[in-house]
Structure formats: structure tokens, C-alpha cells
């Protein structure tokens, strides 16, 4: 046990620096993936078949290739044309990969919103995009949160693969410490501990977001209040 502790203790700040990079990688790729996912989802829902074909092709290709292969492809592909730091190459590759999954999450969520909502918006004179932005998307986002959270947790863990591009995030740090000390078990156990802590924090954060979104409109939260008000009204109507 003392060996684990010693690796943890002596390399704490090195791991912390790695954790910082992991967080930066995850946040950057998460933001880019959300934007890309939304864009591809709209392409996929378009009435123009070339856009749909493009979206389907993109999603099919990305989901059909292992992330590590995409990372290498993008890294060597991008750096052949323009010099890009490994961090950004990694972030872009992660974003592209996550974006394909996020696109499917958004498409499902948007399609799950009752068509009558969009029709009601249009019947009030709202143009297509205004109706999407004000009526459909807020409801779709809320419905997508659990699946998005899941995807973001996967994304955070997948960022470990960027170590193979030479980015010293948590997993890269562990590889380095293993090479230094020959304590493979200990080096990776500490890395695992860092990941676990970050994911627990992320999960708690997501749960809060979900709860806050639900509090504003959910039927469950309000049902007892609504029921009381309803019964009161009905008694008044009858009397």
C-alpha cells in the first residue's frame, strides 16, 4: 500500500498538471462537439437529400472507425498541411468523434418533440428557425441532457488516448511515471483515481443541471401543487 501512496505523494503535482490538461481537452472538445453535433443533426433533419447524405456519411464513417485510428489520421493528416500543436489536433479529433454521437443524440431529441409544437409555432407566424430556437430546441435540449451527460463522461475518458500524440494529460503522465519508476500498477492506479474523482464531480454537476431544468417545467415536481389548484378550481366551478 505504501508504494501506491508514495507514487501518489511524490507525483501529486505532476498528475495535477495532467488533470488540468485532461480537463482542458475535455472542455474544448465538448464545446466543439456540441456545436458540430447540432450542425450535423440539422443537416440530417434537412429536407435536402445531399445534406442528409453528408450527415449520414459523416456519422457512419466516424462511428465505424476506432478513435485511436481517427486520432492518428487527423494528427498526421493535419500536421502534414499545417503545424498544429498536439493538444489542438487531439481536441479536434475528439470533437469530431464525439460530434458524430452528439449529432445522433440531438436528432433523436428533436424528432421526439411533438410535431404539433412546431406547427403551433409556425401557425403564429414564426419562421422556421425562430420556431426551432424558441420552441423545439429548448424542449429537445432538456430531453437530451441525460444522453449528453453520458456522452460527455465517455468523452472525458476517451481523452486519455490523446496521450499517444504526446499530450501529457493524466494517462500520458502515468505512462511517463511508469517508465521512470517501473511501477506500472501504482502509476495507473493513481491515474485511475484521478479519472474517477473527475467523473464523480462531473456526474454530480450533471445531476444538478437536470434537476434545475426539471424544476422549471416538470409535471412530477409540480403535480401535487397543480392537482390542488385544479381541485380548487373545479369546486369553485361546481358551486
Amino acid at each position: 500500500m505504501s508504494l501506491y501512496w508514495s507514487i501518489f505523494y511524490h507525483n501529486f503535482w505532476t498528475y495535477m498538471a495532467g488533470a488540468r490538461l485532461t480537463i482542458e481537452l475535455s472542455v474544448v472538445s465538448l464545446i466543439l462537439a456540441t456545436l458540430l453535433g447540432l450542425f450535423v443533426a440539422f443537416m440530417n433533419l434537412s429536407s435536402l437529400w445531399p445534406l442528409r447524405l453528408g450527415a449520414e456519411g459523416f456519422i457512419g464513417l466516424i462511428r465505424g472507425l476506432p478513435l485511436i485510428v481517427q486520432l492518428m489520421f487527423l494528427y498526421y493528416g493535419i500536421t502534414a498541411v499545417l503545424v498544429l500543436p498536439a493538444f489542438w489536433a487531439g481536441s479536434f479529433a475528439l470533437a469530431v468523434c464525439e460530434g458524430a454521437y452528439v449529432a445522433e443524440i440531438f436528432r433523436g431529441a428533436i424528432q421526439s418533440i411533438d410535431k404539433g409544437q412546431y406547427e403551433a409555432a409556425r401557425s403564429l407566424g414564426m419562421p422556421h428557425w425562430l420556431g426551432m430556437r424558441r420552441v423545439v430546441l429548448p424542449q429537445a435540449f432538456k430531453r437530451a441532457i441525460p444522453a449528453l451527460g453520458n456522452q460527455f463522461i465517455i468523452g472525458l475518458k476517451d481523452s486519455s488516448l490523446v496521450a499517444y500524440l504526446g499530450v501529457m494529460e493524466i494517462y500520458g503522465t502515468a505512462l511517463l511515471i511508469q517508465a521512470d519508476t517501473f511501477r506500472a500498477m501504482q502509476a495507473f492506479a493513481v491515474a485511475g483515481f484521478f479519472y474517477l474523482v473527475m467523473i464523480i464531480i462531473l456526474t454530480l454537476g450533471l445531476r444538478r443541471v437536470e434537476r434545475r431544468l426539471n424544476a422549471s417545467t416538470s409535471t412530477e415536481v409540480r403535480s401535487s401543487r397543480a392537482q390542488k389548484a385544479f381541485i380548487r378550481d373545479r369546486t369553485q366551478e361546481l358551486s
Binding site: 409535471t219 409540480r222 397543480a226 389548484a229 385544479f230 378550481d233 373545479r234
Partner: peptide
């Protein structure tokens, strides 16, 4: 100030 879910 009621949401639709609170209305009959």
C-alpha cells in the same frame, strides 16, 4: 404564471 402542466 402557471405552466400548461398545471392547467386543466
Amino acid at each position: 404564471d402557471c405552466h400548461p402542466s398545471e392547467l386543466s
